[in-house]
Design a protein around this nucleic acid. Structure first.
Lengths: 158, 158
DNA sequence: TATTGACCTAAAGTTAACTTGAGCTTTTAC
DNA sequence: GTAAAAGCTCAAGTTAACTTTAGGTCAATA
């Protein structure tokens, strides 16, 4: 075992295994996030990663943002707007979450429209006609948006 | 030009290019769908694909289902439940859309919950705490669902 | 001290849904 | 009849977000 077994002495730095356990992410995912610049660490003499405790908060934020369907590259971009690449504090969080709230609203509305069209079209057989709202999306809001379309993936725990 | 220029003589079979134009999909996508068993065609003497007109309806249905976030494999499975692999008629469509409506509802609800959590947590700084609803999803509905998690991708026209 | 478990790196593999490219054939328009 | 447009096949490339594998190091425990 590398560090911090059962009774962790003090709230000091965390090893990658500890972060993995506490965050629910795989060690490989943390490596991956680090390679993408989403999180940071320093190294011990033996070249092992060590993380500041706030990496947990940062990881939480990443996960929340991901659940909204925002791709990692955009999450990184958002986090990068913070001075010194610091982990969001209250104020930062307010700003970030407001932005993500909008994205969510847009997605929810889009899906709702789709659902309602589906309702309106059930059994009408209109799917083959030019005027069908399902065939002609009418997703104007989406098109007017950022122009960015998102991949959303939610996965079971591995 | 292969077939069906400006004034198409009669409503007969369609070439892949015609289907592409009318459906808005790329020819390569139609090839791809065919390779996946989502659509069918027969060949001319010169080995070119020909499609029955109802392939357009079928493609529309595929697109609608995709917009709900259902993966192609599941769409194919749904279409495969239809006898003779026929394109859905009114009744079939009612059944399929009802099922997809449920999926949509679930996804909408999930996103709505997430958005509301985001609201509730704005500025509270609780993200670092164990009790935060954002950190502890509570997406029970999702977990109770099919166990299937979906990729949703919407793309601009290429 | 020896062994095991935690780590490390770099590269390759995975999945979905397509797209691109290469090289060749068929149609069609002039 | 010939050239360009449309089609064909098959393989490989693309993107996101990871995971897996291989091969080697480090550290804590029996």
């Amino acid at each position: 075992m590398a560090k911090g077994d059962g009774c962790s002495k003090l709230n000091r730095e965390l090893s990658v295994g500890e972060v993995a356990e506490r965050s629910g992410l795989a060690v490989s995912t943390l490596h991956f996030y680090e390679s993408k610049g989403l999180i940071k660490s320093w190294r011990t003499g033996g070249n092992q990663r060590r993380y500041a405790r706030d990496v947990l908060r940062r990881v939480s934020i990443i996960k929340v943002a991901q659940r909204t369907g925002i791709p990692l590259a955009e999450i990184k971009a958002a986090l990068d707007t913070l001075p010194d690449g610091r982990t969001p504090n209250k104020k930062d969080w307010t700003r970030l979450s407001a932005r993500w709230h909008e994205e969510l609203d847009a997605r929810i509305e889009q899906l709702t429209r789709l659902r309602d069209s589906l309702d309106g079209c059930i059994g009408c057989g209109c799917l083959s006609m030019k005027s069908c709202p399902l065939r002609n999306p009418g997703d104007r809001a989406a098109e007017l948006g950022s122009g960015a379309w998102y991949l959303e993936e939610v996965r079971r725990k591995s």
